[in-house]
Design a binder for these strands. Sequence first.
DNA 1: ACGTACATACCAACCGTATGGTATGTACGC
DNA 2: GCGTACATACCATACGGTTGGTATGTACGT
Lengths: 205, 205
Amino acid sequence: MPRATKIEPERGGARTRLLEAARDIIRQKGFSGTTVDDLCKAAGVTKGAYFHHFSSKEALGVAAAEFWADTTSALFAQAPYHKPEDPLDRVLAYIDFRKAIIEGDPAEFTCLVGTMTQETFQSFPAIRDACATSILDHAATLEPDIAAAMKLHGTTASDWTAQSLARHTQAVLQGAFILAKATNDPAVARESVDHLKRYIQLLLA
Amino acid sequence: MPRATKIEPERGGARTRLLEAARDIIRQKGFSGTTVDDLCKAAGVTKGAYFHHFSSKEALGVAAAEFWADTTSALFAQAPYHKPEDPLDRVLAYIDFRKAIIEGDPAEFTCLVGTMTQETFQSFPAIRDACATSILDHAATLEPDIAAAMKLHGTTASDWTAQSLARHTQAVLQGAFILAKATNDPAVARESVDHLKRYIQLLLA
DNA sequence: ACGTACATACCAACCGTATGGTATGTACGC
DNA sequence: GCGTACATACCATACGGTTGGTATGTACGT
């Protein structure tokens, strides 16, 4: 899709660079707090290039959410937590994996679509929907392992489902990110993830 | 503090009306997405009145977080969940209370300071700190009941504390709000709160 | 093989408006 | 008459978005 040329080797990558800039800057300042000029400056492109690729700022928000969904799902698909044979171990390994990447600057480990959801859910439904798809699709990848663990360990659940537990894991992570941002301390978020892991062990083991 | 007059009976309440407007509009559009004119219009005051009470938009953000902390802590202090004699029942009643108020429009039941934290934690440290205080102080009100429940039920916790569990409840609620906004469905949030309640029961009963 | 037609990717400069913020004045209570 | 609580009018800038253009690549008929 990119198109390199002789005199301008970067040519063709403006769209991707804008999406990467959006991922980084929106996580720092939020969607409304991020200006088109911010993005152009960070990506090293002009506003003409920006509006060539995105018809509006809202369109970039949607594309950024989709870009996030694509890149993160690729990351999780190749992560090592799928290896254990016991499905419960896979779920717990997923939790460990999520915990392990909570470190450093909150702007770098927190979730783009969770952040965008908060401020766009009323004003920009298209962005909200793209964010919802990203979150729910990721949660859905956990359902088979949870369901298999329930079956294997003879868990009888009358008042909850694999789907609701999968979504709950995402709620805990999103909430943990908020605490980490508020306190500027990843450790607070990791403690919540510990509670989540303990819950799943109590529930399924 | 308010000062009524003959020709302008609303006079004196501009600051409070601005803070109420901030509480409502920032929850809909976020802090950056909310303009000073939005607030003045909703509060029915002029920009002169606005800058008489708040030296900047950031100052209003801080005041709005403090206003939120004050009004919500008053609400929770007089809520009925403190009545049970068993401290575990009080904690569970708190969860039930939080679940019960999750209904209707997400903009009305979600948390102002959780929303503001997300977009201000880098750009406006003063706002972030006010948000953190609001969240952590509220979490701290749960600690005595959790600690008492641990003692009463002989819970032996080597790897977690009453404080971390109290904060975890707030993480779950904040995360549940994000899912509710993304899906535009309070039910998703309530299911996460159910998981939280189940966790506390497994842990402390 | 080559010219034409078209599409893609980008740039520089500009525009109308909305934004946060200010300067100045006035009504009112004490 | 003095401080507080506002109102009116205004400003410099930043904002999202537009315009018109150029360079590069591709499809295709001949």
